[in-house]
Design a protein around this nucleic acid. Structure first.
Length: 326
DNA sequence: AAACCGGTCAACCGCTCCGCC
DNA sequence: TGGCGGAGCGGTTGACCGGTT
């Protein structure tokens, strides 16, 4: 026997779109008395609705501080950053975006941001480059086309700092795919002995050299300085090894199914994603520095022809030796 | 002009969490 | 300590709208 719905057809309570009169009744009542118990509110407010429906209507539409209208580019970046860390925790994401509701963010993600990420070759669930064979073929074709044709950069590419050369993104993805193959072959336990020097990833899922193990070292080290203005700031570095987000939708979850480093990972010894998030006294700290902005700068510094050579040299010098069983 | 189609988003459904008894 | 009920959350649905055929 299933759970009885809060407002089934037999109760005679109204469902469906709200009328302006109903909105007015609800707004008037809450502005005078507060919402109190949602269950008793409809009766007190003279509404033929269930309390749940009233709560939804109020929190998603009628509340005075709700910001309506188009999402700004900054809001988009925040959503993507937060989604990469929190997964589909829309209410948690909404707390970082004043005036936006979880429902609105969820809808916006599903209708806009997912598609944008897919268009630039990022898996919106894992926030990593897509690796399915068909997509790789498309990437290869795009790479060939982009080196011969003009600028294909989209506004979204611009937002990611790739406006100067769309082939850059394709190269990044191809390299990332290559590295993923290497990593998958190299790592017996990718979440324990993660590749030396390749433990950190940026918003595009690319690997970034490993950080020092504590914040003081970060402040003093080349990781902190060398990536100053071009790296993930320490407070943005989120734990991956111990990540244990509840629910089934986090991209950080289930490393066995997802044996690649997460896009935002932590210096060794940091706490889990959730712990780190919850330990922050100022939630805005999480998004005080845009990963995308940092990545923009990093990319700007590394667009020379020698970039890939250096990158590959770094890879070979900092990656662990291949295991015997390889 | 009408049918069709895809995108958007408000609202609903069902589940989990949490506090209270 | 277990049951219950309220509140909240995330996934899904369906109405609506604009563009296309």
């Amino acid at each position: 026997m299933g759970r009885s719905p809060c407002c089934d057809d037999q109760t005679g309570l109204k469902k469906g779109p709200w009328t302006p009169e109903e909105d007015q009744k609800l707004t008037d009542y809450i502005s005078q008395h507060g919402h109190g118990s949602w269950k008793s509110l409809p009766k007190l407010a003279g509404l033929n609705r269930c309390g749940k429906s009233c709560r939804l209507r109020w929190t998603n539409y009628l509340k005075p501080d709700i910001k309506r209208g188009k999402f700004s580019e900054d809001e988009e970046r925040k959503i993507i950053n937060l989604h990469s860390v929190l997964g589909n925790k829309w209410s948690r994401i909404a707390t970082q975006l004043p005036g936006r509701t979880d429902n609105e963010i969820k809808n916006y993600w599903n209708t806009h941001l997912r598609k944008k990420l897919l268009q630039i070759g990022i898996d919106p669930t894992t926030h990593k480059p897509r690796t399915d064979p068909n997509h790789l073929i498309n990437l290869s074709l795009l790479l060939g086309a982009s080196t011969n044709a003009g600028n294909l950069a989209s506004p979204w590419g611009n937002a990611l700092g790739l406006q100067s050369d769309p082939s850059q993104l394709v190269r990044i993805q191809l390299l990332q795919n290559l590295l993923q193959v290497v990593n998958a072959s190299t790592l017996l336990n990718p979440f324990e002995g993660l590749v030396n020097g390749w433990e950190y990833m940026n918003p595009l899922g690319l690997l970034i050299p490993q950080a020092p193990s504590n914040s003081q070292d970060i402040a003093n080290s080349s990781w902190g300085n060398g990536f100053e203005g071009g790296s993930i700031s320490p407070e943005l570095v989120i734990g991956v090894k111990n990540s244990s987000l509840s629910g089934g939708s986090s991209p950080c979850e289930n490393p066995t199914e997802n044996p690649l480093p997460e896009l935002v990972s932590a210096p060794p010894g940091t706490h889990s994603t959730v712990n780190q998030m919850e330990s922050m006294t100022d939630p805005n700290q999480l998004i005080s520095t845009s990963l995308f902005e940092d990545w923009d700068k990093l990319m700007d510094d590394e667009t020379s022809d020698s970039y890939w050579k250096e990158m590959l040299e770094f890879t070979s010098s900092s990656s662990p030796p291949l295991p015997m069983a390889w």
